[in-house]
Amino acid sequence: MIRRTRLARIGAWAVALAVSVPFVILLLQSFVESWRAPAVLPQRFGLRAWSIVLAEGTAARPALVNSALVALATTTIALFLAWPAARALGESRLRRPTLVVVVMTLPVLVPPYAVGTGLAEWFIRLGLVDSLFALILAHMVYVLPYVVLLLASGFGREVESLEEAACAMGAGTVHRLRLVTIPAIAPSLALAALMGFLVSWGQYGTSLSVGGGIAMLPVVLVPFVQADPPVAAALGSLFLAPAVFALIVASRQDRMN
């Protein structure tokens, strides 16, 4: 027999906590006001870092707005572009699905800074550089593949037969979509949207190369890591928030299944 010891259980929880606790403490670190070495605990907590982040005139606030706007726009457009492709893939109607998957996913593995730099060359010529539109296009290379693959996992024989039944009962295209298709694939749709948002939200290399003049959250965050750690922690907490939200949604869905 293989024995599962109590030690192993404690070990598993210890590793899980060690992995996750630093991210939780990040929020705490953003309230540190004064922390002179070698004190173990900060001497004073306060809102200094947050007042810098939320103040008008710093790059942080526009960065937050720009990152959210670009992530929302990229994800929304990606969902529309992905829908027919995800459907064809999910219903296994393609003769060579591997080819489509390879074409879609290959770019994801190529460094974003490389893709961004190559795209910037075109955007400069087209007068698009330093615009939110350029950022959306560049992020699309990384967002669209995830959205297609996650959305495809929702489609299949079951959804198809539900739709056929609705059609037989006289539901038009719009009704069918609203009352049958979307509710049927809702979990995959939610995951695809969340993942798309997260991928765009986390883009550094493409944002730096394509949108040099536009404040984006990760680009604004980097210099603060050395210059002002509490501000980095505050920006980092905001940067982390969507991932935590995604994790909660994913684990709730998991429990429902």
Partner: peptide, 15 residues
Amino acid sequence: LWALFGLPVPVPHLL
């Protein structure tokens, strides 16, 4: 436990 453990997966590398 899996959820705690999976926390770094959706987190951006930079973070």
